[in-house]
Design a protein around this nucleic acid. Sequence first.
DNA 1: GTGTCAGGATGACAGCTGTCATGCGTTCCT
DNA 2: AGGAACGCATGACAGCTGTCATCCTGACAC
Lengths: 204, 204
Amino acid sequence: MTQTIRVVLAEDQSMLRGALAALLSIEADVEVLGSFPDGELALQAVGKHRPEVLVADIEMPKMTGLELTARVKELYPDTHVLILTTFARPGYLRRALDAGASGYLLKDRPSEELADAVRRVSRGERVVDPQLASQIWNAEKDPLTDRERLILRRAGDGETTAGLARSLRLTEGTVRNYLSEAISKLGASSRFEAARIARSKGWL
Amino acid sequence: MTQTIRVVLAEDQSMLRGALAALLSIEADVEVLGSFPDGELALQAVGKHRPEVLVADIEMPKMTGLELTARVKELYPDTHVLILTTFARPGYLRRALDAGASGYLLKDRPSEELADAVRRVSRGERVVDPQLASQIWNAEKDPLTDRERLILRRAGDGETTAGLARSLRLTEGTVRNYLSEAISKLGASSRFEAARIARSKGWL
DNA sequence: GTGTCAGGATGACAGCTGTCATGCGTTCCT
DNA sequence: AGGAACGCATGACAGCTGTCATCCTGACAC
């Protein structure tokens, strides 16, 4: 029998946090030491308990899972980090791995995979969704120029053509032209759709 | 000792679905008969098992939790429905209660409350977050007509004016007019902003 | 120095968007 | 029955949106 795997959880949604703790506690070889709603509290807990594994969400208040991962690997490199997130964005995966995460698991994967992923990262293995892992290499890269990106972001937030032209000292035609370029590069059919697409790929 | 409470779960995010099932299964007086990723499958399961309680998310593919609630109360009125959602929107709560839901629990409530809420709705009690319950009374109510709501929802999803006109057998002018009405009622300045506002209040 | 290329900037133009005045049918008071 | 209120439907119109052809500039290769 191998040693018990001690786990700390960081997840901001309370119901999911409790449910994940219950899910992991069922496993005989896993012990949940504590679960926390933000990165700062989780970091303290990791410092105190030095668990084998930290399971962390990305989008959390105070300190994101990505920052948390970096701090944990810096201060307590023996703790393996498993990122558990909704977002299948290659940009997040790349940043998670760069920060030193051992695993990256999506919330729409079956719950049976969680305990297995925890066991594998605890042994020092790397656990990444194969589909996502392949995406990271042939990920499309942002086709937008700086000007296009800036204008698309602000237009997507609801700023008007006239307002943008005024604040950037351009004519309205020019602003519309950048948007037109962005729309065409992204295969969208309106500025709003273009903004949605760009955001979903992490380009804005 | 009271009888076992039999539960069916409807939740589209796989990890949460499995974790909730684990959480409820820990309770000695609760039995999870099955858990399903969309409303249609959950409806079939309710028909087959006639559980005491259905725990349902709102935003799911194929059939939303609100539609599911209405269908369940129509076909199998003995099953009590507990809505479990991220969204503290009075509009959702009102529609859930109108559809016959017995409870409305937020995903950012502690996981300990879930089993308790399940027990209470199984006894026929009504379980609603007190803060949210008070909001429902002084909440603005949806100013949109059925036609306006339908068209705004689909326009917000990116359907074009021409496409909407075709599929609804209206002229483009008429479609634009409904959108114009909706925009004005919601204080927006474009169809997209109007859709965003309406969605945030749970009116779409 | 010359050619090439990408990004920035512009205005004309066709087509789409939101607004408004208007008409029609239903429902509900009085 | 009359009429007020409401929702549904329409088309004309002004203004905004996205597209396109075009020009200018600076960076880079040869």
